[in-house]
């Protein structure tokens, strides 16, 4: 769970870090990825693995292009004003939800996993697919990190993040960078969704939970800090689980939530962030 959370959160962290934009519709991009995965796997014949791989390639591209379109048509015109983008992304959220409800329907629908392997531990069983998801998420995250740290694209992004005006002066097309980052962030959410949909099923309201969680993860981890986001994703996934051993599950959720809030209060820069938020 943590692995998928990390993927979604990194997408949000990118958008957040580079563009300074709160994307309330991020969870809907996640949902869109999952729903698209259901369509792709249903339409493509053959063994489930083929459809799944197709979904893994096509869905993020589709979602990324929707995001890029939204960025160009709406967010750019708002000049990324923080308040206005919140309203705009709430509007986007409604539109995407309605689109999913009208075209896909209100039911939760499962997607077949590309393989079913059950790892049997002495005391209980665990799904082999889940382990594969963790591995896949790790690979993708490494890829994102390489992209940011080692390539020219990453350099341009970081430059834009630090100082938009200077970057523009150096001939960087800031608009293109923003559209690209927004699309990349949404694409990552979609990848996470495709990976999780054999475990969780696609549903038109599923964007809500990952949105909240990834918000938390991003902040706890420190804005724009990929490493922090990863650690935070693990921490939150685990802390919830550990506390629930000792208390009733709902009480555990309450305590975990308060814990996260208090971390923020007393360490506002996040766990790994280098500067104050």
């Amino acid at each position: 769970m943590s692995a998928v959370l990390a993927l979604t959160a990194v997408g949000l962290a990118l958008v957040f870090g580079v563009m300074r934009v709160v994307n309330v519709a991020h969870g809907e991009f996640f949902m869109l990825g999952a729903v698209a995965a259901w369509f792709v796997t249903t339409w493509i014949p053959g063994p489930p693995a083929v459809g799944f791989i197709a979904a893994l390639v096509l869905c993020p591209l589709l979602v990324a292009s929707v995001a890029a379109l939204a960025d160009t048509l709406v967010l750019k015109r708002l000049n990324y004003d923080p308040d206005a983008t919140i309203v705009a992304t709430i509007g986007l959220l409604y539109i995407l939800q309605q689109a999913a409800l009208s075209l896909y329907g209100p039911d939760a629908r499962p997607v077949e996993a590309p393989f079913t392997l059950r790892v049997q531990f002495p005391w209980f069983g665990y799904s082999g697919y889940k382990l594969a998801v963790i591995a896949a998420a790790a690979v993708i995250l490494a890829g994102v990190w390489l992209l940011l740290a080692r390539t020219k694209i990453g350099l341009v992004m970081r430059a834009t993040q630090i100082d938009r005006e200077t970057a523009r002066a150096f001939g960087i097309n800031v608009d293109r960078v923003y559209a690209g980052v927004f699309a990349l962030g949404a694409g990552l959410a979609a990848v996470a969704a495709v990976l999780i949909v054999p475990i969780q099923q696609a549903h038109y309201l599923m964007g809500h939970d990952p949105l909240l969680l990834s918000f938390i993860v991003v902040i706890i981890g420190g804005l724009g800090s990929l490493r922090g986001t990863l650690v935070a994703a693990l921490l939150i996934g685990l802390s919830d689980g550990v506390i629930s051993v000792f208390f009733s599950p709902t009480l555990a959720k309450i305590l975990a939530t308060l814990f996260v809030a208090l971390v923020l209060v007393f360490r506002p820069q996040g766990l790994m962030g280098r500067r104050a938020a």
Partner: peptide, 8 residues
């Protein structure tokens, strides 16, 4: 008793 916000 499972919290209603749980997904796994």
């Amino acid at each position: 008793a499972i919290p209603p916000t749980e997904t796994s």
